[in-house]
């Protein structure tokens, strides 16, 4: 616990010591405000559906940018050599780093609560979908973060980590989208639509939080964290 806390503190602080956290937060808030008000003025309705349906695509660009440095930078400047010779277990480092990136996401999402507050002010929102939407954001973002971190363990080049992160998240997102499902062979459709990141998000958006969706997101997170630990361990055998 102590070790995870130490890693978490170091990583979380390092986000705010560099421009990345501020850029992430500012852009995310600006984009979400834009999507929300565009919907508001076009439709004349204070609803958040438009905002939530855009988030998977916004995250696709932003989250790999948050996770790309987690391992790639350490490997590039060599600090990983001190880090991995401290008396810490590999999984503790992975979890500490993951939690730090998750909390950055958490802070951002908290700040974006200004939108539902505006919605409440402008009209009578339906609480269920909004709450569901925010829980969905956390789960979906959490899954993207785990994938992005795994991408960062693969390489020592942050740009490569960023692009790999986008590609992997995109892959997992697109297989559940209609464009792919319409063209896929029949037998694979249920598998794809189960594995797709977005499908579970849209069912949460409807305000029903099904345990199957929760299990899905937790498995994706667990799986990629596990892959990250594996990758870190394997790299000792270079």
């Amino acid at each position: 616990m102590n070790n995870i806390a130490a890693i978490f503190k170091k990583e979380f602080r390092s986000y705010f010591n560099s421009p990345i956290a501020y850029i992430f937060i500012t852009f995310f808030l600006a984009l979400s405000a834009w999507f929300f008000f565009r919907g508001f003025f076009l439709v004349g309705q204070a609803v958040m559906r438009g905002f939530f349906s855009w988030v998977p695509w916004i995250f696709l660009l932003f989250i790999p940018a948050v996770t790309m440095k987690l391992w790639a930078e350490e490997k590039k400047i060599g600090t990983v050599e001190i880090l991995m010779t401290l008396p810490i277990k590999d999984y503790e480092v992975v979890i500490g780093k993951y939690l730090a990136s998750f909390c950055l996401l958490g802070v951002t999402i908290l700040l974006s609560l200004s939108i539902p507050i505006t919605v409440a002010y402008l009209g009578e929102p339906d609480g269920g979908p909004i709450l569901g939407g925010y829980i969905g954001l956390c789960l979906m973002g959490g899954a993207y973060l785990a994938i992005g971190m795994f991408a960062s363990t693969i390489t020592e080049n942050q740009i490569v980590a960023f692009i790999l992160g986008i590609v992997m998240c995109f892959g997992l997102l697109i297989i559940g989208e209609d464009i792919v499902l319409f063209n896929a062979p029949n037998w694979i459709v249920p598998i794809f639509s189960y594995l797709g990141l977005g499908a579970h998000f849209s069912s949460i958006l409807r305000g029903v939080i099904d345990s199957r969706d929760l299990i899905y997101y937790f498995s994706v997170i667990g799986f990629f964290l596990y892959l990250s630990v594996l990758m870190i361990t394997v790299q000792k055998w270079r």
Binding site: N2, R13, I82, L86, P87
Partner: peptide
Amino acid sequence: PLYTDMGVIDYLKFIAQV
């Protein structure tokens, strides 16, 4: 190799904790 974005004291505190 050291974390260039940390303060000297913060760095030593981090190591001391771990």
